[in-house]
Every structure is written in structure tokens, then in C-alpha cells.
Design a protein around this nucleic acid. Structure first.
Lengths: 231, 231
DNA sequence: ACCTGAACACCGTTCAAGT
DNA sequence: ACCTGAACACCGTTCAAGT
């Protein structure tokens, strides 16, 4: 890593810091995003970052801001009109768009959980979803319930817990045999799932099919309750 | 904190360590659970813990083990027969039981996320839920989808992101006025929700009503797809 | 077998100082 | 105005040593 002179080194701006933090997290996960490593990547001392940001959390907020800007881009703007579509279809498309962005930045859910602040672009995302449901005629009360029911799915991910320790391959026959003693029902289910689709990993993988299955149940249920609202 | 002699100090066992870790986390949150503080609480040096556990993660696994033992107790055992009830009702009751336990240990979801290992009592919990659905006649394929769709709700919590920075009180009129400019649809919804129920905190509170609303949409949807399975 | 003391390689951050 | 160097108060953990 060649030491560049101060003259040819680009100025340290908030944008450069956040962009570099993003590529650091994308490349090596959240753990690799430390103040010292981030500074090194920028060719600067760690303490210089504190001139531009009050603390590390402010940098994390910058990352969320940038993520939701990407989501807005992916959605072609945050429209509140379901032009041509039903509100369900429009909301579904937007959520799957958010999901595509999060799959590029898999560390984002962890940051969202650690930060309770609502960054502006994230607020605009939520606002757009409220507007979309409103345009479909849902009551504010039902929309409020909907936001809770969707939970993190609204942002394109769901909190699923992985079953296997190493996250590697499908279970072999002897793994299933050992499991059958302690967890017979689970083992029987996995035996069949693995047989039908050898590509599926053991259990709780948050893959596209499963994500859409859960999302569609929720959207269906909300539409059904909306219909009931209108008698 | 009086220094007790070795003689009168109870032996350092895995059980005592995990129990003390639990009360430490219950009292001061996960951040307060450090190896040094845990050792201090036990009247011992931090390094002594490494004689009984290979590392801190092993202690966290012990906490999960203990948590799911509490859940089993709360459920009166992990039956796989929905005696007298439908499978939906039995599953609903069990999940709400898990939730009651997690509300006593609010740091547990964070530990579950950080650990990808499946501790034995947790495996038995999942197994019991598979068995319960199986006793209701659901196919393994539908059960597999159900586990994904329920996600963390199965364990009694849902990943919801808080809206307000400080998690304190309801928004005042001037807060809503400022919000109205940037997020008009969201502000309008909250205005109405706050008006109807001044007790509700701003937005994403993971409270009982909202948890059950989302859970019931999912259970309804699963039952509906089960009915379709049977033509 | 069970526990300890000193040390290592990290963190985020404060503070006074440099240019 | 912008950046640095040294230091502080923490982490989890290793390693050799005590009893």
C-alpha cells in the first residue's frame, strides 16, 4: 500500500468515508469495519475520522442513509400511486426491490438492528409504503397493523435463524440418522425436503422462494382484512 | 462486596456460571455480560471461567439452552399432539408461551442471532412444532414453508425496527408538524393512531396486540393453504 | 483438578498538540 | 480548518505458573 502525499490524496469528505466503509463491510463483513481499518483504507489516521463524524454510530447511520438511497433508486423513486397495479402488487414489487439491494449488502440488517435512529431516506421509504396502502383505500389503523405484521420483511429481509452450525452443505444420511433420535419430526421433514430438492440447504435458509411465500401470506391476509373493513 | 474465603465459596460449576450470566444479562443487558464482570459476580478471576467453558460463545449457548428449558416448562412440556385443540390453536399457545419467556429475557433474540449453533433444547422446541403441524395433517413441504414464514415469530419475537430515536414518549404536536413536511403519509397515520390510543408509543413497538395480529395472519394463511392442499 | 497473574492483540474514544 | 500521536479504559483470550 503506497504512501501517497497529502497533495495527491483526495480530501477526506463524509461521502468518501461512507463509501469506503460500505465497500469494507461488503468485502469483509461488519466485523472488518473498524475505525482503524477504515482510516487505513482512506490513507489517514483513525482520529481524523472524528473530525468529520462524532462517533462510529454516525458512520453507521451514513451507511443506512446510503442503503436506502440505493433502494429508492432500485424502485425508480418512492411513488405513492400504484399506477396500473393493485396496492398489494406495487408494495410487493417495492419490497422485493429492497430485498435485491440488501442481498448486495448482507450486513445491513445487523446495522439496522443496532441503530434505533430513523435516518431520513429510511423514513421516506416507510412513508412511501404508508402512502401506497393509503392509495389502496386501507384505513390508517389497518396500515399501522400492516407495518407491524410485515416487520423486517418490509425492508427485504426476515429474521430467520439458521439450523446448521457451519452453514455448509446438506445433511448426509448419517447426520439425519443421528438427528432422528433426538428430533424425529424435524429429521423426517428434512429427509423429505432434501430428497425433493437437494439444492436446498438444511432448514432456515432465507432464500427467495421462502421469502416470497411468507410475504404473500401476509399481503393476502392484509387484503382479506381490508375487504372485511369495507363490509 | 465482601471477599469470601475459598472454603465457603460454592464450587464453580457450569450451572452456576450460566445462572449468574443470565441474571447479569437480565439486569443490565447483553453489554453488561463480559467475562470479567461475570467472574467478579462469581467471586472468581476471569480466567477461571475458561476452565469450564472453551470461550464466551459456549456460555452464550448455555444461556440459550436454559432459555428453551424455561420455554418447555412454560408450555408444560413439548407435546406433539394438539389434544382437544386444532393444530393452529396449539401452535399459537406454544408460541405465545415462548413469547412470555422472552419478555423476561429481552436480550435472548440478540444472542440467537449471534449464535448459529442449534442448542439441543432449541432443536427439541422446533421438533415439537413440526410434530404439532404434522399431527394436524400438514405436508412436510407446507410445514417447511411454515417454518420459514413464521421466522422469528416462532420463537416469540419479531424483528421490528423502532421508529423513534430515544424510545421515550409519544410524539408531541410539534414533532408531528415537523414530520408532516418530510413524511406526510406516515405523520397522518401516526396522528390518527396516537389520537385513538394515546398509550401506544410511536410506531414499531413490538407489543402484544401487534404480535398476535401478525401471528394470526400467518396461521390463517397456513391453514388456508393446508385446506387447498386437501382439495 | 482447579484456579490465578501477567500479558497480548485488539476495540472506540479523549485530549492536547501539531500544521 | 483539518489532521495527528500518545494515551485511556475497556474487550476476549493465550500461556505459563501456581496449589
Amino acid at each position: 500500500m503506497p504512501q501517497r502525499s497529502v497533495a495527491e490524496r483526495p480530501a477526506l469528505t463524509r461521502e468518501r468515508v461512507v463509501a469506503t466503509a460500505m465497500s469494507l463491510a461488503d468485502g469483509g463483513g461488519l466485523d472488518s469495519l473498524t475505525m482503524r481499518r477504515l482510516a487505513e483504507e482512506l490513507g489517514v489516521e483513525a482520529m481524523s475520522l472524528y473530525y468529520h463524524f462524532p462517533n462510529k454510530n454516525a458512520i453507521l447511520d451514513g451507511l443506512l442513509e446510503r442503503t436506502f438511497a440505493e433502494i429508492e433508486d432500485e424502485s425508480g423513486g418512492f411513488s405513492t400511486e400504484a399506477s396500473g397495479d393493485t396496492w398489494q402488487q406495487a408494495l410487493r414489487d417495492r419490497i422485493l426491490g429492497a430485498r435485491r439491494v440488501l442481498l448486495r449488502h448482507p450486513w445491513v440488517p445487523a446495522v439496522m438492528e443496532s441503530r434505533s435512529t430513523l435516518v431520513p431516506t429510511m423514513a421516506r421509504y416507510i412513508d412511501a409504503n404508508v402512502g401506497l396502502m393509503r392509495s389502496g383505500g386501507l384505513s390508517h389503523d389497518l396500515i399501522h397493523h400492516a407495518m407491524h405484521a410485515l416487520g423486517s420483511r418490509q425492508y427485504g429481509f426476515s429474521q430467520e435463524l439458521t439450523l446448521d452450525g457451519d452453514g455448509s452443505s446438506s445433511p448426509g444420511d448419517q447426520d439425519l440418522a443421528r438427528m432422528a433420535e433426538m428430533v424425529p419430526h424435524l429429521a423426517a421433514m428434512l429427509q423429505e425436503v432434501v430428497h425433493d430438492d437437494p439444492e436446498s440447504t438444511l432448514g432456515w435458509c432465507d432464500d427467495q422462494t421462502e421469502f416470497e411465500f411468507g410475504l404473500d401470506i401476509l399481503l393476502d391476509g392484509l387484503a382479506r382484512r381490508h375487504a372485511a373493513e369495507e363490509h
